[in-house]
Amino acid sequence: MDDREYFELEDARLTSFELEFLTALRVLVDGQLRPYCVELDDDGLLVGLDIDAPDVALITVGLELTGNRLRGDRISIHDRTFPPTPTPDGFVLEGAPSDLAARGWELLDTYNRRPIVKHEWLHRRRVYASCYLFEDTGERLSDMYRGDWAPRRQEAELRAKGFVRGRGWIQTEGLGDPDRVILL
């Protein structure tokens, strides 16, 4: 398998700089994780790595190579855009293909190795709510709440206390300590 095939770019036209970057990145990855090309256009290429739990997409980390400039950070799972303000792990730098690949690998490896825990809340032996978090920071990555399995009136209480976001999604912050914590 060559570098183009490995990153799912079989028929893509790459610049020599892009090809050197992908070759150096593949050597560093060495089968430990599987980034893929999200997009390739005239402006450059975007390589992504999905960090998932069973049946749940949690985050995607992206490396955007434009000329000799590499931007790395978490990107939106939905539209593959970078955050307006870089996260603490994000970066933008210029350099040689091998140097950019090394810094890109560091970011991918950091997220790939971060421990994730799943918190679960039970009622009548059913998981009615769960939350995936980074164990080291406590950052919440994904919440699930099933009002039909939850204790009676709990959902109304959580709504009254403001534990609702976006399209009316109940947030697990208001549930107290979980009944079960699972290290993934």
Rank of each mutant, 00 (worst) to 15 (best):
R26I: 11
L184C: 10
P88V: 00
P86C: 00
R125E: 14
I75L: 03
N68H: 06
T15C: 02
L184D: 08
I51K: 07
A156H: 05
S76H: 01
L40V: 10
V56E: 03
L45W: 00
D177Q: 14
F91E: 08
R71Y: 00
D42P: 02
V127E: 04
L70I: 00
G138C: 02
V164G: 11
R4W: 00
E157S: 10
D55V: 05
D42M: 02
T172S: 10
L40S: 15
P97K: 01
A24S: 02
T23N: 15
E139H: 10
D179A: 09
T23L: 12
L183F: 05
R126P: 05
K161T: 04
T81Q: 14
V47D: 06
L28A: 13
R167F: 03
L28S: 06
T66F: 03
M1Y: 04
I170G: 10
P151F: 13
V27P: 07
L183Q: 14
D11F: 14
D3Q: 11
S98K: 08
H119V: 07
R152C: 10
S76E: 01
I116L: 09
R152S: 13
L107S: 02
G48L: 01
I170F: 08
S16C: 11
E5R: 07
E135D: 15
Y6S: 08
H123K: 02
P115W: 09
M144E: 09
Q154G: 01
P84K: 01
V56Y: 02
G62I: 00
R71V: 02
G166K: 05
A53I: 02
L70M: 02
A101W: 00
A160H: 08
R159T: 11
E173T: 13
T81M: 12
L175Q: 14
G95N: 04
I77K: 12
Q171S: 15
P115H: 14
L70W: 00
D79Q: 09
W105D: 08
G162C: 11
A150W: 04
W149D: 06
Y6F: 13
D11S: 15
S98H: 08
V164A: 07
